[in-house]
Amino acid sequence: MHPAGVLLEALLASVAVVSLLSNASVLLCFIQSAEIRSHVPGVFVLNLTFSNLLLTFTSMPATFLGLIWGEAGAAEGEPPFGAGFCGALSFADTFLSTNAMLSMAALSVDRWVAVVFPLSYSSKMGPRDAGAMVGYSLLHSLAFALCQVLASWGGYSPAYASCTARFAGDRGEPRFSWFAAFTVALHLCGFALSLLVLCCAYLKVLRVARFHCKRIDVITVQTLLLVVDIHPSVKERCLVEQRKRRQRATKKICLFIGSFVFCFSPYVITRLVELLPHVHVHRYWGISTKCLAYAKAAGDPFVYSLLRQQYRKVLLRVTDRILRRDSLSSYSTGSTVDTDDIPRVV
């Protein structure tokens, strides 16, 4: 077995485990916290979490089996699954991946409305508005996935070791131009549209955040000048906090946009370059780009949810409850054993 194949198998298995645990933790927070459920952004986070979980249960195991199948010396292009099952997996892959990208774009729009229109946020972004955006995301993804199935453009691709969009015929056929147009439209309306919305929304958020930071900095400096007897260490602490405040928003926005580009762009660019004549995607490169796209599903819970204070509080509370229950059960078991060891006097 090739070392690169073993490395990719270990990487894919690790990504699948982390994705399962992290997305399940987000769902646990939703179940345990009424406060999180009451917030409008939770609708988008929930939609993203379900997409990532379903991707973890469908596409990731299929890619792992396809990778093992190829490493075991299967014939070139021979699928490890039946045609019908592989078609269903390719439908799920297209639908869930596109829906996840659009969910991230919806989260950026929600942050833009919250920062730019803080006083009218509840009227501009209510549960109905969030439901409409999620509904559009689902219909948009469903349209492309159904088009792929109806045109029979889903199947097993050895270059990616997975069931995905693929043209099974000869590239010289007239239908290949339709498949190429579909592939370009899929990634333009999925990846490119989501990236455009992310950049526009978060850059606007960054501009507003910097403006507010400047106003806070001016007020802080004026206060420090008025307070003459303040200790120098307190002044220094205030200035350090100013610098941290200016950098915090930039780091978060770089994380949102940077993780999106880093994880999805290699796969999308490879799929587009693959359409050119005489271009053959190397197996290990194609699988690596697919694993990188899967890594976004594992990282999304940390980027959008688990690092926030509300989610951390809920997880700590649940963990504390579980540990306390275990300690109480062990204590009660120990007490029972101790009592049984005492001889009874008749």
Rank of each mutant, 00 (worst) to 15 (best):
F91M: 01
H278E: 15
G131P: 05
P301E: 00
S90C: 10
I230A: 08
F81W: 03
K124A: 13
F262A: 13
H212M: 09
A24T: 06
D110H: 15
L138W: 06
L67H: 00
M60K: 09
D320V: 08
G87V: 00
G126M: 03
L323P: 06
W153G: 01
C291G: 07
I230M: 15
Q309P: 07
I253Y: 11
W178N: 09
T289K: 01
V234I: 13
M104L: 12
A4G: 09
A181V: 02
V218R: 13
S97L: 14
I342N: 03
D326A: 11
D320S: 13
W153I: 01
L28D: 02
L316N: 13
V40K: 03
L316H: 14
C238E: 11
G73L: 03
S108T: 14
T58M: 04
K252C: 15
V208M: 10
G131R: 06
D340M: 13
A181S: 10
V221T: 08
V18Q: 01
L150N: 07
T63I: 03
V279F: 11
D340S: 10
L65M: 10
V337D: 09
P343M: 09
Q222E: 11
T58Y: 07
C86V: 02
T289A: 11
V268A: 01
L239K: 09
G126N: 14
V345D: 12
R248P: 05
L276G: 03
C213S: 15
S33G: 02
A114C: 02
R245I: 06
H39V: 09
R246Y: 14
T319F: 13
L276N: 01
V303T: 05
G70Q: 15
Q148A: 14
P301G: 00
I253E: 04
A143C: 09
T223D: 06
M133I: 13
V109M: 05
A168F: 05
R237K: 12
S33D: 04
V184H: 07
V218Y: 10
T319M: 08
S25Q: 07
L306F: 07
S327D: 12
H278D: 15
R175Y: 03
S51Y: 02
I219S: 13
S141D: 02
S25E: 06
G126F: 04
R215Q: 14
F144T: 01
S157Q: 12
L306C: 09
T56H: 06
S194I: 03
A151S: 12
C291S: 10
S137L: 01
T319G: 15
V17I: 15
V346F: 15
L67K: 00
C291V: 12
S327W: 08
R171F: 02
D170F: 07
T98P: 02
P79T: 05
F57I: 07
V279K: 04
F191T: 08
G135S: 02
F91R: 00
L225H: 10
T98F: 11
F256D: 13
R324V: 08
A159F: 07
T164G: 03
V17H: 05
A24Y: 02
P3H: 14
I36V: 13
L89M: 09
T333C: 09
W112P: 06
V345F: 14
L21F: 12
Q32C: 11
N99R: 10
C199Q: 13
S51W: 01
L188I: 11
